[in-house]
Nucleic acid binder design. Structure first.
Lengths: 336, 336
DNA sequence: AGCCTGCTCTGCAACGTTATAGGGTGACTG
DNA sequence: CAGTCACCCTATAACGTTGCAGAGCAGGCT
């Protein structure tokens, strides 16, 4: 059924190793021989068996990307970019969905399925600082996200505190003083919510605005529905606010929907800023002002860093690399 | 470095084959031997080398999913569901992005990378009926989408014509007569645009409404930006309309943004219906009325059909399977 | 007693590839 | 004219696993 090196060798009248040499661009081959072999390859439609090659070489040319769920737009866009970067480097990507659940994440790290891959780009949501032990895995890994710092692996992430501070400052600079937050998460000891909250509070403090727990909307999950629900709850209990900082774009978009449903005008009555710069943020009405956290750079750097580890070129201590961010000005924020 | 069967065999004092037998649940092993082997496995932390196993068995436990781009929400949600279904069946998924480009798609079909997988779920955008030859590939494949019918592979898709007709009828039933279309695509001989247009025209005809080319917005790509642009163009040339049928949700959402930007009220001045039932359609303002094309069923059926082909249980002729659809009523359509 | 059967375990070959080591050529050098 | 060297090619042994064939042994049957 499948054509192998043996078949090509037999047809072209050379040894199997010569065929292998032709395929691998070994330089010392007579042009005539090379032509004969290539003709045989074409005639038989031979393609190498990558499984066998991998067994020999110990490499698979496959990397794994583990994210909570592709139906979350942030991770879909991240995955799209990681796959593009990996393809440029000649790799393919297995995408694993953990559901953001700590146990599933720990299972995945130990799964023999990863044996089929050269390395892992892991974006945890459940695993945290208490699991650094489990993160000391026997294969190359790059960590994304905010759950684990000082872990045993390279870590590529964004400047959460600074970016969140910039978002809040952007609102403050436009005269907003009652800036609600959507996405706070009390139980969390380390993560995006904690860090972005820190940046928010820094901005308030620097501007001399008191922190008010009454305008902090809490939600563990960061879906559109959670943003809308948290916003409705804030409005229902009569919170006074002139701006909303959604800790990500889907929260902000959900919140924006709830605001407009409640008859409030965005940005005039309430300005809204998000975080992530999803594609869809350009097309809400009004278009969402947000933070571009450098996702493209993160994807690219994750792949190149993983490749360096795989190649064993870097035996240095784990590094943490931070992406640059910027405020993307659109329509959902106006000056008072 | 890596622990192999040999290491386990040496430690437990049995042959390598016995260890293999223990791992593969071969029944005739003395409990004492089994226990000894299992203890050795645990002590050494042995996990099987899947590459070697695959070379022996000819199976990899990996399937490929080829879509245009994960940053398109429809394909991200499809991929999420395919990965979930595959995982339930003990498979992992390599995601390939073709960009929707015919040449890239044809390249992919011939790529040796697919040698690493047991089969392919392929959602083409560029490849069309003229390429049925190239689709006759030597590995199990399931086709998705509307580009190729009557091909050499199983085909799982949606009831485009009926669903589009239902969408238009839904608008007509609410008194809308000037129903614009966003997403028509003239160059296309076969595809979603063609089929959905057919359903739209069927509905018009059945209601005795004349077809008017002036309210048909054309766009090859189906991003949010294209929907907004096409809508703006229609409005700019003074088209008279009381409803919009976006051939997918992102087009509809883009169009909705353009409508509201132009000061029109949705749904009262102009009602909007989409197609796909993306997660984000629930959270636009107003929430988007749309068609649920049965994406979940499609993902599940694609995986199980592919698995049947891989197992060789079905040697029957290629089948076409159609998902059920339904209209999802939300807020973007109102009665006149 | 002799044979068969079933259980437990083993050795070898094979999956398709690449690395290593080395065997022939012919041409060039001294 | 011998020696050296670059070039072209080949045979063999792995990579880690599983399928196949069978060996040794105990127990039960005739």
């Amino acid at each position: 059924m499948a054509v192998t090196l043996h078949d090509v060798a037999r047809l072209s009248g050379v040894s199997i190793k010569t065929v292998s040499n032709v395929i691998n661009d070994y330089p010392h081959i007579r042009p005539a021989t090379r032509a004969r072999v290539e003709a045989a390859i074409a005639e038989l439609g031979y393609t190498p068996n990558l499984t066998a090659r991998n067994l020999r070489s110990g490499r698979t040319g496959v990397i794994a990307l583990a994210v909570p769920d592709l139906s979350l737009a942030y991770f879909a866009e991240l995955a799209a970019q990681v796959i593009r970067e990996a393809e440029a480097a000649g790799l393919v990507v297995v995408v694993e969905q953990t559901g953001g659940d700590r146990d599933s994440e720990l299972d995945l790290l130990r799964s023999p399925r990863l044996k089929l891959t050269d390395g892992l780009i892991f974006s945890p949501l459940g695993v945290g600082p208490e699991d650094v032990g489990a993160l000391d895995v026997p294969y190359p890994m790059v960590l994304l996200g905010e759950r684990v710092f000082e872990g045993p692996a390279d870590h590529i992430t964004m400047r959460n505190v600074e970016a969140a501070r910039a978002a809040a400052e952007y609102l403050i600079a436009r005269g907003r003083r009652r800036i609600a937050v959507i996405g706070a998460h009390d139980g969390e000891r380390m993560g995006s919510a904690t860090l972005r909250m820190r940046g928010y509070r820094e901005a308030l403090k620097a501007a001399g605005i008191p922190y008010d727990d009454d305008i902090v909307g809490r939600t563990t999950f960061w879906h559109r529905a959670n943003g809308a629900d948290a916003m409705r709850e804030l409005l229902a209990r009569g919170a006074v606010l002139d701006a909303v900082f959604g800790f990500n774009d889907t929260l902000a978009l959900g919140a924006m929907r709830a605001l407009r449903q409640a008859g409030l005008r965005v940005p005039d009555d309430v300005s809204v800023i998000g975080f992530d710069d999803l594609d869809e943020a350009q097309f809400s009405f009004p278009a969402l002002t947000t933070i571009d956290p450098g996702r493209g750079w993160i994807a690219k750097t994750a792949v190149t860093t993983l490749l360096q580890r795989i190649a064993g070129r870097t035996t240095a201590a784990p590094r943490t690399l931070l992406a640059d961010f910027r405020v993307v000005e659109r329509e959902s924020v106006s000056a008072v």
